[in-house]
């Protein structure tokens, strides 16, 4: 079906010519993510969004926990910290408070963020900590081979749920909003431009910002549930996602075969931990 002659015409180039090479640690490429995984697409969107904001590269730090998504920190050519499982947020909290010139981004998977790191997530949202959290949700623990996680849809199979997962999953936008986040959006890996725009909006904003990316995991989640390849999942997102800005997050649950509600659920202003504390302490101490 392919024309062999065409191949000759396509320019084959070196990795360092890629327009994003300056923001990637090209000496660590190719990355570990599987063929058809959406993590790289989300990362592309993040790099483009960062470039578009014009925020100096030196003033952005990325913190991540453990898992496939945790590896993001290792591929970005920024100050980057790969911490322990679930602890990206508290590490980032110290980093952001000690160095307020930094824009601190936490890149975390669903298991990392809302299972083992769930307590940190809700408390950081409550405090409106000045962090942007990108949650790559692939409904499973990919790196360890596809165990059920806090977002695994009801009835989905996993290596630790061979009969299907029958505990209720978290709806991350709802959890974030209920806990006090000030910017909450959800996109799939296929909504590249919208995702990029969302990241561009959230990056310079203050407060606790959460962007969830629904991401194909062809190797673990899709294989166990016979959902096909990464491309098949992208097609599934194409057919089954609904964009509804300002949607009620309670209606954004994700079922095995249901619709995926995407969009910006919330975008409000509220004093951040640092601003609120500094302002009120200054009043009491009579300082400037």
């Amino acid at each position: 079906m392919n024309k062999p002659a065409a191949h000759l015409e396509t320019a084959i180039v070196e990795q360092d010519t890629h327009p994003m090479a300056d923001l990637l640690r090209m000496d660590r490429m190719p990355h570990i993510w599987c063929s058809g995984c959406g993590l790289g697409t989300g990362l592309t969107c993040f790099i483009m969004a960062l470039k578009e904001t014009g925020i100096p590269e030196d003033k952005v730090a990325v913190v991540s926990g453990i898992g496939c998504t945790g590896r993001v920190a290792g591929y970005l050519n920024l100050d980057s910290f790969h911490t322990t499982h679930g602890r990206g947020i508290p590490f980032a909290t110290g980093l952001a408070l000690a160095n307020p010139d930094l824009r601190v981004v936490v890149y975390s998977g669903d298991g990392d963020l809302v299972a083992i790191g769930g307590n940190h997530f809700i408390h950081s949202a409550r405090r409106n900590m000045d962090l942007m959290v990108v949650c790559v949700n692939n409904f499973t623990y990919g790196m360890t081979g596809g165990q059920a996680g806090p977002t695994t849809p009801i009835s989905a199979k996993a290596s630790t749920a061979p009969y299907g997962s029958y505990d209720y999953p978290f709806n991350i936008p709802y959890l974030a909003i209920a806990s006090g986040a000030t910017y909450v959006a959800r996109w799939t890996s296929l909504h590249m431009r919208r995702l990029k725009n969302s990241m561009r909006e959230a990056l310079p904003k203050k407060g606790f910002r959460v962007i969830e990316i629904i991401c194909p995991c062809p190797t673990a989640f899709a294989r166990k549930n016979r959902l096909g390849s990464g491309l098949d999942l992208m097609k599934h997102y194409h057919d089954n996602s609904i964009i509804k800005h300002g949607a009620d997050p309670r209606e954004a649950d994700i079922d095995m075969n249901g619709k995926v509600v995407c969009g910006t659920f919330l975008d409000i202003e509220r004093p951040t931990f640092r601003d609120f504390q500094t302002e009120n302490i200054a009043k009491q101490l009579g300082g400037e």
């Binding site: 396509t10 320019a11 084959i12 190719p30 491309l231």
Partner: peptide, 26 residues
């Protein structure tokens, strides 16, 4: 179009979603 051939994992995303159908898998 420029392809970093050795970095590709053949997922087919670009081929499927190119709006002008320019690409095919080699």
């Amino acid at each position: 179009i420029y392809v970093v051939k050795e970095q590709c994992k053949g997922c087919g995303f670009c081929v499927e979603y190119c709006p002008k159908d320019v690409l095919e898998l080699s």
